[in-house]
Design a protein around this nucleic acid. Structure first.
Length: 107
DNA sequence: GCCATGGCTAGTA
DNA sequence: GCCATGGCTAGTA
């Protein structure tokens, strides 16, 4: 049994379109808790496989991959590149271009 | 206690 | 680079 927040977090991640990325904080805001970014990390860690989440479409606020390269970060980058998402020289994604934000302005 | 965060500050250049 | 944040789980007097 999952909490309402966890369920909403899963739905929010599932809603990120192909070729776009969202951030931990924004997914948390979509799920109704602006401070829930770490819970998003927890959900990604524990539910990606079971829920079939597009886990690779969640990056940090700076447009960077947070996951350690050896722990899946390299795979994440490859999956995003396969979807047409571009990284600049410093390994950053332009969120103005590829970011997908649906969180309400002020909860 | 864990977790794939985020925001803000000190301390450089 | 520090630390407040918060839902969830393991493991327990």
């Amino acid at each position: 049994m999952q909490s309402a927040f966890t369920r909403k977090t899963i739905d929010a991640i599932l809603s990120i379109p192909w070729g776009k990325v969202s951030t931990y904080g924004d997914v948390a805001a979509m799920a109704g808790n602006r401070r829930g970014a770490r819970q998003v990390a927890r959900v990604l860690h524990s539910c990606s496989r079971t829920e079939g989440l597009p886990w690779h479409r969640v990056v940090n606020r700076e447009g960077r991959i947070s996951l350690d390269p050896m722990q899946g970060g390299d795979l994440q980058k490859r999956l995003l590149i396969d979807e047409g998402v571009e990284f600049n020289r410093s390994g950053r994604i332009d969120l103005a271009l590829y970011g997908w934000f649906r969180a309400p302005a002020i909860p």
